[in-house]
Amino acid sequence: MTEEDQSLSRPQRRLLRRIYNGRSVPIIVDGRPFLTYKDASQYLQSLASQARDAAYAEMKEKAK
C-alpha cells in the first residue's frame, strides 16, 4: 500500500475537522469512540481503502 493510498483526501480532512471541532460526545465507529480529529484521522489512515471508506461514511452519517 502506497502512502498516497493511506492518506485522506482534502475534502475528507476538511469534513472530519468540521465534524470533530468542539465535539463533546464521541462518535462510535467499529466499537471505538472518536472525540478528536487527530484520533479519527489516524484510525482512518490505518485502515485499508475499502474499510477506510466505510468507516468515513459511518462517521459522516453519525455526525448528522
Rank of each mutant, 00 (worst) to 15 (best):
L44Y: 05
I19E: 02
R17P: 02
A63N: 05
G31I: 06
A63M: 01
L15G: 01
L8V: 07
T36H: 04
R23G: 12
T2V: 00
E3M: 04
K62S: 06
N21R: 14
K64T: 11
R17T: 01
A57H: 08
A54L: 12
S24A: 09
L35D: 02
P11D: 13
A51G: 01
S49G: 00
A57M: 08
Y43F: 15
R18Y: 08
I28K: 15
R23P: 14
K62V: 00
L44T: 09
Q12T: 00
L35W: 02
V25K: 10
L35T: 01
T2R: 15
Y20C: 02
T36V: 05
L47G: 09
F34Q: 07
Y43C: 07
S46R: 15
K60C: 05
Q6C: 10
L16M: 14
A48N: 08
S41C: 12
N21G: 01
Q12W: 00
P33S: 13
A48V: 03
Q12P: 00
S9A: 14
R13Y: 00
R14W: 06
L8N: 04
E58Y: 00
R17H: 10
M59E: 06
Q45D: 00
R52M: 09
G22P: 01
D39R: 10
S7I: 12
Y56C: 04
Y20V: 00
A55V: 07
Q6G: 00
R32D: 03
R14M: 09
M1R: 13
R14A: 12
E61Y: 05
R14K: 12
S46A: 15
K64M: 13
I27G: 07
V25E: 08
A55G: 08
D53F: 02
S9G: 12
I28L: 14
R23N: 11
T2A: 14
R18W: 05
G22I: 02
K60N: 05
A54Q: 12
R14E: 14
